[in-house]
Design a protein around this nucleic acid. Sequence first.
DNA 1: TCGTAGTTACGTACGCCGTACGTAGTGGGG
DNA 2: CCCCACTACGTACGGCGTACGTAACTACGA
Lengths: 247, 247
Amino acid sequence: MAGRAAEPEVIWARPERTGRGPKPAYTRRDVVDAAVRIADADGIDGVSMRRVAAELGCGTMSLYNYVPRKEDLYELMVDAVSGEYELPDEPSGDWRADMTAIAHQSRAIMYRHPWLPRVMTTAYGFSPNALRFLEWCLGCLTPLDAPAGLKMQLIAMVNGTVMATVANEQAIAERARGLPWSEAEEQAVRGAYLMGQVTSGRYPHLAGLLAEAPAAPVDPDEIFAMTIARLLDSFAPPTGGTSVTGA
Amino acid sequence: MAGRAAEPEVIWARPERTGRGPKPAYTRRDVVDAAVRIADADGIDGVSMRRVAAELGCGTMSLYNYVPRKEDLYELMVDAVSGEYELPDEPSGDWRADMTAIAHQSRAIMYRHPWLPRVMTTAYGFSPNALRFLEWCLGCLTPLDAPAGLKMQLIAMVNGTVMATVANEQAIAERARGLPWSEAEEQAVRGAYLMGQVTSGRYPHLAGLLAEAPAAPVDPDEIFAMTIARLLDSFAPPTGGTSVTGA
DNA sequence: TCGTAGTTACGTACGCCGTACGTAGTGGGG
DNA sequence: CCCCACTACGTACGGCGTACGTAACTACGA
């Protein structure tokens, strides 16, 4: 008989081995790493059980000894890259600085793994590294005098904002994968349509915006930093000093 | 010969009909509505070309007369439900009120169509209704004295926040679709794992948070309203009056 | 010590999926 | 009026997730 029956369980609670039987050729981590490599290279849709097995050099169905369902593989992938956070031993005491640093780390991780935002909308939960991350964030926020619920909101909003930002920045690139034509063609064709619409006169405000835009070429990093700063301000306005609202 | 060759194009620029030949049995809108009905009922993964055709009562391949690729169907679906925004003829003049109303409409739409957040991370672009929405938002923001780029950031952040919020609230329900067990079992099993971890002592801050939580049962609507208010504050702090920071 | 039960490995097969391609029939424009 | 662009759609291909069966292997209880 093959792997155990499908029953309600969380992948994190399932032991990788029980001790009996032949030694497995790989570890669960090997499988996940292979999947992450494929997703980084070819996008998340390139991750199929057959492809992962090929990458590993084993039979497709052998994977089911390590991972009960593909959904669990996704969760394991998210957890694996969540392990890339480098969290100091102790928070600095400046919660704004700590949260800003965390946000930048999140962004860097999502740039390394552009499939993350998409997968996280379905396969995100309280994985070990998610708990580690959450615990760290709460630690950073101890200096902030606020009820626990508010701290959770802050963390959630920072995360959500980073996700939305990166997803937005990389939308075209990610979408272009597996299209019958190139990314450049896609971008050109979409840009042409947008221009046609805007110059049609039906969207005066939008036209005004686009007319103004080229005058101010923007730096994504700067925008990101400003966005996060503003977000943190909204939870605890900086005591005196200049506002970040203006440009 | 069947439908035209695959070439770079935007679905919005492709005419639905050219005039020649027999009258189509359906409209592009019929196809999209059928897809939306299925997604609402069975989740986005229930939307397959075969299923949509069955819903419509036609052959599978007939759909390709209306929609060149499935990806385009997704974009059409997003645009269709984006048409559910009810936008007055003129902004009220109070941009905070207008943007708050928009955010609540967005949330309502995403509750009606829980698949939206997931699909929007890949299939979102400058569709007609997206342009209409954007134009409206920019109109609402004319009273706000800020550079165009900042207004775009504001709009993007409000949208992103709504998406992240709803996606988070509905994560378990959406994930449970197509699982080999029930949503209740899923939730129970995940809750049990979480409890086990938190009570292990490895996550003191998190434990403290959970100990505090049941004392303050939360109203999602209220949290959402507060989050949006805070977000808007961060772009233009209310002139005098109480801060919304505290709970 | 040894049988056996639990495990690993993996080939085969089923029912889905998106969609390329071919064919038949229809009706508007030159 | 007739041609041909167009609609409708059946068939088929290559891919997917994974249920199930079989064979080899090894740690443990008797």
